[in-house]
Simulated scan of single mutants.
Amino acid sequence: MSDTVASPAKSKSASPLITILIASLMLFSMFFGAGNLIFPPMVGVSSGTNFWPAIIGFLIAGVLLPVAAIVSIAISGYSVRDLAGRGGLFFGIAFSVMAYLSIGAFYALPRTGAVSMETAITPLLGWEGTAANGIFNVIFFGIALALSWKPNNVIDILGRFLTPALVILLIALITLAVTNYERIPGTPTEAYESSPLVTGLFEGYNTMDAIAGLAFGIVIISSLRAKGFGRGGTLIRSTIITGIIAGTLLAAIYLGLGYMAQTVPDGQSYESGAILLADSAKLTMGTPGQTVFSLIVVLACLTTAVGLITSTSEFFNS
């Protein structure tokens, strides 16, 4: 990998405002992985008429906590180790290593490849089995590694290209589903009937973005510094604004996915948000819709994999 932190260099092609906007799209794409795509629809169909308290709970854990994590990193120093180090040297190192391994090599990173194969490639192309999985994961993580090779270019790769494509596809899917089907909330399931806010809160935490926010802070700060934001108050304010914009976009997409799920006929019969979304895409757009959904899943997982590889490698390199 290249150097962890680039020396600050003024961006010659974009104003500070445009740079912050692109960084916000990059952060959104790193947060928005497979779990972020499939959890909100299940909250929508399972909560039924208790949709609003459930989705508010989801947004608290899935948006507010990750944004708070980014803000904490910006204020406390440079990385999660700076923040955790206030609890002592051993705790700072141990907590940081556990956080990066849990969202990286031990769980979240392999999941991006597995979910891409299971929910995008196999339903569309019919490929399955050990050999197909192995070949796909070599290609998938090879592309992710290539995109992650120069950390200072991540803000341009994700913010300028991959994220806009992902957001456009998501908006197209949500809009078509909402305009083609009537929203009919069902009866809440047992968990959402008794405590919809708390159940939604747990589902939002399952996205793992509260921990990922601590890890992704290093990428945002490095990228903004490389674009000429230097250190001090300007960098802190820019990082906080980036987190807020990314969080706002996350909240809008989560609301759209949860609302859209309640337009799918017999939505509560689905056990997986991935299958529900795939069927919704196929119902609204036919086979091309299924292709669109596959592209959404692969892009969501790929952008998250790039963010995880970059942030984890920068941490362990330091």
Score class of each variant (00 low, 15 high):
181 Y>M: 09
183 R>K: 14
184 I>L: 11
184 I>V: 10
185 P>F: 02
187 T>C: 00
187 T>P: 01
189 T>Y: 02
195 S>C: 12
196 P>S: 11
197 L>M: 14
200 G>T: 07
201 L>P: 13
202 F>A: 15
202 F>T: 10
203 E>C: 03
204 G>C: 09
205 Y>G: 08
206 N>P: 05
210 A>I: 00
211 I>T: 08
213 G>C: 10
214 L>N: 12
215 A>S: 13
218 I>R: 02
218 I>W: 01
219 V>T: 12
221 I>D: 01
222 S>T: 04
224 L>P: 10
224 L>N: 00
226 A>C: 11
226 A>T: 11
229 F>C: 06
230 G>R: 09
232 G>F: 02
234 T>P: 05
235 L>P: 05
238 S>Y: 04
240 I>P: 06
241 I>S: 06
245 I>H: 06
246 A>C: 06
249 L>C: 06
254 Y>P: 03
255 L>D: 06
258 G>S: 05
258 G>E: 03
258 G>W: 05
260 M>D: 02
263 T>N: 03
264 V>H: 02
265 P>N: 06
266 D>L: 01
272 S>K: 04
274 A>W: 06
274 A>I: 12
274 A>H: 00
279 D>F: 03
279 D>G: 00
281 A>N: 08
283 L>G: 00
283 L>E: 07
284 T>F: 04
286 G>N: 00
287 T>Y: 12
292 V>N: 00
295 L>A: 13
296 I>V: 03
